[in-house]
Design a protein around this nucleic acid. Structure first.
Lengths: 201, 201
DNA sequence: TAGTTGTACGAACGGTCGTGCTAAAATCAC
DNA sequence: GTGATTTTAGCACGACCGTTCGTACAACTA
């Protein structure tokens, strides 16, 4: 039996987070303010506050919500591809596509927030590091699987390759949001394609 | 004949900016606050304000000061190298070194601020875009010169190569500040070396 | 010497921030 | 129905924000 009260609460919680991830992708997690969100969503500031307990908890919840969106648009569709090199390619393509389609209005949420919190300390920093690291780890793990499956030449330097693919995705998002246009995505895709072909067995 | 008053003003102006670039490289240009800077430097808030005219002008001056530091540590030493491929290599090495030595406590100032302001509008955005674009342009121009000098295979795709080198530097800074360690710099340097060797005539 | 200019200060402004308190409204169990 | 529970609103708080103003003092000009 569902409690209509907590259901209502979870609904506004979702609404707040849906708005917060968009704002944070442009203005940063520091740019989030309870008052602004409340005004935008026609809620009371204290209501939003009560829903999350503190500003920091709202930021953490926002990181969590963004992580779910990232997983939905990048990770999950890639896991549908067959393991090995095809899955690596899917990961790259879905990542670039997610950034280019501006799932978050400010480009990749985690590019923004990682740069914002990389040199700080605290729970928000830790959360951002954790999510970012998890994705980098997924790329490397998928590459390692490809090597094991014989899709990559053995001893092809999975760690090195992983770093380079990650760098290209990062730069595509950065350049595109900063200067506009789809050219960075084409350049990144081409570099990824060539680099993977070079490492293929 | 020097005016001791404006000399004094320029001295505190420099002191403020020297502190501001460091703070901004960690907390962002939004994290700058007149009150905080004044407190840190034992100045009055209104004094700092009067020195720059407005918060936005302080941010712009901070971007300018950071640009000068970047030029001093990355661009100028690289221009001392002979044109062509050696200069390209110097540019890469000096860039990575500048980031790794933490000339700014939060890593590369422009990585931070570009991510912070990329999706906004206004004078600060424009200033950050201009400086970032100028460095990317320098890399590409230097590569083009290398191609003209016969150091690179003609038709080797200077634009593509430029994007990739830029991406590696970006990612090295991002990974290192986020997760710590010098490993990202080694990975980036290795990738740059291999990629340039591949494109060499 | 008198007057002007530039730096720096201290106090105060209106505004927004995050955060408490209290009360109302909505939903539950009985 | 009554009473407990949970979400939401309203209001006030202290702190900090960028900004303005008047003023004090040092350094220049005449």
């Amino acid at each position: 039996m569902p409690d209509g009260r907590v259901l209502r609460g979870e609904a506004t919680r979702r609404a707040v987070l849906a708005h917060a991830v968009g704002v944070a992708s442009v203005e940063g997690l520091d740019g989030l303010s309870l008052g602004r969100i409340a005004t935008d969503l026609k809620l009371s500031k204290s209501g939003v506050f009560a829903l999350f307990g503190s500003k920091e908890d709202l930021q953490l919840a926002t990181v969590g919500a963004a992580s779910a969106v990232f997983t939905e648009h990048v990770v999950d569709p890639s896991l549908a591809a067959p393991p090995g090199l095809p899955r690596v390619r899917a990961l790259c393509e879905n990542w670039l596509s997610y950034s280019e389609r501006r799932i978050f209005p400010g480009g990749c949420f985690f590019f923004h927030t990682a740069a914002e919190y990389d040199a700080r300390t605290g729970r928000v920093h830790d959360a951002v590091v954790e999510v970012s690291g998890r994705f980098a780890g997924l790329i490397e793990e998928t590459l390692r699987e490809a090597e094991k499956l014989g899709h990559l030449a053995s001893g092809s330097g999975v760690a090195q390759l992983s770093f380079e693919l990650h760098a290209l995705g990062l730069a595509a998002n950065a350049d595109s949001v900063l200067h506009g246009g789809s050219r960075p995505y084409r350049l990144a895709a081409e570099a990824m394609r060539r680099r993977l072909a070079e490492a293929a067995a």
